[in-house]
């Protein structure tokens, strides 16, 4: 629904970003009218989490054409790392002092995203790099294996049941607007997600390393001949993708207040769907796809079809793959990494 305008967009957005921004604005208005203000805030929040995960999927695919099925579990592990850091830090409830909260949040994001980035780099180094020139099926199966290893490590350390996380962001801090009661945490989550996405776009589009990523995605051998350090570039891609999934895990732990060892499996499937919807390899598309999945979920719940949510999501995935296999925004491997 939200993407219908986008369908008419040319694959490479030759008309400039304004048509895309216009389409997003129209979609948001339509979504707001359909589900109302309260659910609108719910959809942006859960959509932001899916979008953060979807970015990593799409970046890794864009650069080495690997569907990294372990990516969902990186998100799950990120939630556990955030939970563990908060517990180790001695926090067990809301922090009411805004300055202290800001300091804790900044530290939490830096540490967790850093740790998860390094985990992603380690996985790439030991599980995927040895298979870089192997047939494409080999790294795919390895990715599934890594996914199982991560889930089992989480289960071994934290047990098979949901583990409660300290919710340092008080849930009672809300403001009323347009007849809805919106939590500051929801606003915070959406702002963090959008800021990270803009940061990613600037990094990929404006920096030297970003240019290296784009050139590697376009033609690895030519990039190498031009002096791009391929191993380093791919490692950086994994670092950023995993750090973004880690950010998704943090906001998950803050918002829902728990983590469970297999939460990354389904979240990963939905995020993967989001990445394919947007055109795998296309970071803008992945972000929009994540919000779209969030909207479908919230709309299904609002209208009493939650039982069918997964059918809707994967049905849409099938339709996109049949009628527009490059996704709604088109694959832009070379253009946007």
């Amino acid at each position: 629904m939200q993407m219908q305008r986008s369908i008419q967009l040319p694959a490479r957005l030759e008309g400039g970003p304004y048509r895309l921004i216009g389409a997003i604005a129209v979609s948001l208005v339509v979504a707001y009218v359909l589900v109302g203000p309260q659910q609108f805030s719910n959809f942006l929040t859960i959509g932001a989490i899916y979008a953060l995960i979807a970015l990593g999927y799409t970046m890794v695919y864009g650069i080495i054409e690997l569907i990294n099925f372990a990516h969902g579990d990186i998100f799950g592990l990120g939630a556990f790392v955030a939970l563990w850091l908060l517990t180790m830090g001695g926090f067990n409830g809301a922090i009411n002092n805004p300055v202290e909260l800001a300091v804790v949040l900044v530290a939490l994001f830096l540490l967790t995203m850093g740790i998860m980035g390094l985990v992603g780099v380690a996985i790439e180094r030991f599980a995927y790099r040895p298979l870089r020139n192997a047939p494409r099926l080999a790294p795919l199966i390895t990715a599934i294996g890594v996914s199982f290893i991560l889930e089992n490590i989480m289960q071994a350390f934290f047990g098979p049941s949901p583990v409660n996380s300290p919710q340092i962001f008080t849930l009672n801090a809300r403001f009323d607007i347009a007849g809805a009661s919106i939590g500051y945490l929801n606003v915070f989550i959406v702002l963090v997600a959008v800021a990270l996405m803009i940061g990613l776009q600037l990094f990929v589009g404006r920096t030297r390393l970003g240019r290296a990523m784009r050139s590697t995605a376009q033609d690895r051998e030519a990039a190498e001949l031009m002096g791009v350090n391929i191993d380093q570039t791919i490692a950086i891609t994994f670092f950023i993708g995993s750090a973004l999934a880690g950010a998704g895990g943090i906001v998950w732990a803050l918002y829902f207040g728990y983590a469970v060892f297999n939460q990354g499996f389904y979240a990963g499937l939905f995020a993967f769907t989001a990445a394919v919807l947007g055109g795998i390899g296309n970071t803008t598309g992945a972000a929009l796809g994540g919000f779209f999945i969030g909207f479908v979920y919230v709309a299904a719940a609002q209208f009493g079809y939650s039982r069918w949510f997964e059918v809707f999501i994967f049905g849409i995935l099938v339709l996109v793959l049949v009628f527009r296999p490059t996704g709604l925004l088109g694959q832009q491997l070379g253009e946007r990494a």
Binding site: Q38, N42, F256, Q263, Y266, Y297, A301, G304, R307
Partner: peptide, 21 residues
């Protein structure tokens, strides 16, 4: 008021609850 089904894989119940609130 409403009878909803949420598969065991559901992790976010807030939209369901918001819908009936």
């Amino acid at each position: 008021i409403k009878e909803d089904g949420a598969p065991a894989t559901t992790t976010d119940y807030t939209p369901l609850l918001t819908a009936v609130q």
